[in-house]
Amino acid sequence: MGRCLIVANQTLGGAKLDAAVRERIDAGVRDFHVVVPLTELGYEVAVWSPPDPFFALPAVPMEDVNDARAEARRRCELRLQRMLERLRDAGGRAEGELGDPDGAEAVRQALQHVRVDEVLVSTLPPGLSRWLRLDLPSRIARVVDVPVTTVEAEE
């Protein structure tokens, strides 16, 4: 049946990622491992906001860089927990972790303790996605020996 590794942050819970997960579940995949690269708040894209309360994370004023790091971690942890619940509600078995800010490094580190059969990289839409500008899907493909599928969120 296999295991699918999902790499995402702001797009966790988005319609396109949910559809990709549903396809895998329908094909018999039940095990999912979610890696959320610890994205700094300055890299979050405020203009992209899907109509899903999953993303309704209130802005918190940052007094200093330590507050900003703590808030970034809080957001990533919250998104991860919500996505794990979503996967379980859809019939999957799910676990996950926060990862290195560099998505390729986060995947490499996760693969030291998790075996997967596919990697789903969920990104913001072209033009908004820093991961696409950094060619993250290709960088991940160079560190894994399984298929890498890119899921681009709708604008």
Rank of each mutant, 00 (worst) to 15 (best):
G99Y: 02
E118M: 13
D100R: 03
L136R: 01
V121N: 01
V148K: 10
A153D: 06
A141H: 10
P50A: 03
A15Q: 07
L38T: 07
L128Q: 05
V151P: 06
H33N: 13
V60H: 13
D26K: 10
L38M: 11
C4P: 05
C4W: 06
L57N: 03
R3N: 00
F54H: 04
T39C: 12
S49D: 09
P51C: 00
A110Q: 15
C4N: 07
G91K: 03
S138A: 15
A68V: 10
D26R: 12
F54A: 01
V65I: 10
A20S: 01
R73M: 02
Q81W: 08
R139N: 05
N66E: 13
G92W: 08
G28T: 15
R133A: 13
L80E: 01
R75Q: 06
F54C: 00
P58D: 11
L84D: 08
R75I: 04
E77L: 08
G92V: 11
T150W: 01
G92A: 13
G28C: 05
D18V: 13
R142V: 11
P147Q: 11
S138F: 06
P125F: 00
D100V: 05
G92E: 09
R93E: 15
G28E: 08
G42Q: 09
P147K: 07
A94N: 13
L78R: 11
A153K: 10
D102P: 07
G2N: 05
A46S: 12
R69V: 06
L78C: 03
R142H: 15
L57T: 02
E152D: 12
A59L: 08
F32C: 03
R86W: 11
R108K: 15
V151W: 04
H33Q: 15
L38N: 10
G13H: 06
L120E: 05
E23R: 14
A70C: 00
V146Q: 10
V143N: 01
C4Q: 07
E63Y: 10
D100Q: 07
Q109Y: 14
V21T: 03
L17E: 09
V144F: 08
E85L: 04
R86D: 11
V151G: 03
L98G: 11
P126G: 03
A20N: 01
G103M: 09
M62A: 15
F32A: 02
V119N: 05
L111P: 11
A68M: 09
P125C: 06
D26M: 10
L84A: 09
R3M: 06
D102T: 08
L17M: 02
V36D: 14
A46E: 10
V116G: 02
P126N: 04
D52Y: 04
G14V: 04
S129T: 11
D52C: 01
F55W: 09
